[in-house]
Computed example of a mutant assay.
Amino acid sequence: MTKTAFSTRRTDPYGPPAAHRRLLAEEPIAQLEWTERGGDVWTVAKYEDVRAMLGNTSFSSDRSHPLHPGHMAYNPRSHPGRIIEMDPPAHAAQRGRVMGEFTVKKISAMRPRIEEIVNQSIDAMLASGNSGDFVELLALPVPSMVIADLLNVPESDYAFFQEKAGIFADGLENMEKRQQASSDIVDYIATLVDARIAAPGDDVLSRQLAAGAPREEAIGLGHLLLIAGHETTSNMISLAVMTLLDKPELRQQLAEQPELIPGAVEELLRYFTIAETGGLRLAVEDIELRGVTIPSGSVVAALTNTANRDPDVFPEPDRIDFTRGARNHVAFGFGPHQCLGQNVARLELVVVLEILFTRLPELALAVPVSELPLKEYSNFGIHTMPVAW
């Protein structure tokens, strides 16, 4: 097997890197050199194999392990409660305790508040003038405010909450600043948890504490909800709107058939796959996939971006088709670590697409898509998106 270099760097917002496409077509299980992170990485590219990998707990998610590829982000202060960083049996126990917070029925009840948040963000856009950065004006504030509501953050703390979330969402370019923002968020969530211990309320943290979650677990959960639920949703809002502004025929289709919006959200989730190397794991034993043995101790990446472009599962995968019925995508992962907040993200995206173009019918990109600065790390997105209305 020839070892070549692996990179997540993109030049085209509409497609995975060419090297990832090659892996899908020619080398679905590969051992590569990951120069950006250092060391080797095994990549898994096809849909069937990605699901098999993400469903197998012998590919460990435990970031406290020094060999885990996510160990650089491990924080012992927030690790308890961050269920994406855990393996069984601790993972199953804690996920089971919190799953009831994110059912379709419970999240659907949030629709009026999410509509209010989206409308408030648009009001602020209109009040600011007739142009600006869409990421800063709407894509970042909407998910951070939704999470603030889930945690019952006091209104006086909104500015701090959004500032720290925005720093963390900006990328890996300034790791020291990002790590400080993460630490500040942990400190802040700790104050919320202590307040809930003293005076329980009607919010996720209070209910988890009442269900038996220790203080440290509640802090880690609050940190996870902000970090995992903010940046990915913000990136997806930006890219979805970019697509509709850049491809007016798709925007017109949704204007004429608004009932397609939920299906459009699923198709755009598949198409962009924000967490494009979404299953970074550590093999804790020798594991065979597609006749290839991945040795114990190996870093392994599930290429969900190529899995969602697998032509064996999604015919004409590079075509955006709002009638495809793409809910079987792996944009939210698969298996025991499938995204807990996926119903929240879906609803936010649906509400944005329902309201935005009705209230801002003249919304347009102020620069070509080719000039938008791309995020070049495991969560794909765009840093800024100048628009006018």
Rank of each mutant, 00 (worst) to 15 (best):
R346A: 00
M1S: 15
V284G: 00
D149Y: 05
A165I: 05
G297D: 04
L289H: 02
E348G: 00
V299W: 04
V50F: 03
G229S: 06
D12M: 05
R63D: 10
V351N: 10
G81A: 09
P69F: 04
T358C: 08
P16K: 05
N235W: 03
R95W: 01
E249L: 08
V352I: 12
S60F: 00
L32Y: 04
F380R: 10
I261D: 06
L269M: 05
A190V: 11
A25M: 13
I185G: 08
P214L: 08
P69Q: 14
F59C: 02
S182P: 12
E163R: 14
F160D: 01
P112F: 14
A366P: 10
A345K: 02
P258A: 04
P76H: 12
N130H: 05
F314G: 05
E276Y: 09
T233I: 13
F59Y: 11
G212M: 07
A302H: 01
A159I: 07
E176A: 15
L254I: 07
S60L: 06
V367R: 11
D149N: 11
E354K: 10
E85H: 14
P311Q: 12
L260A: 07
E249P: 04
S234A: 14
T43Q: 07
W42T: 03
V118E: 04
L221M: 12
E33C: 03
L226W: 03
T35G: 06
S60I: 08
L280R: 15
Q180P: 04
T232P: 10
H65G: 06
A52E: 11
S60D: 03
P368F: 00
S144E: 07
F168E: 12
W389L: 06
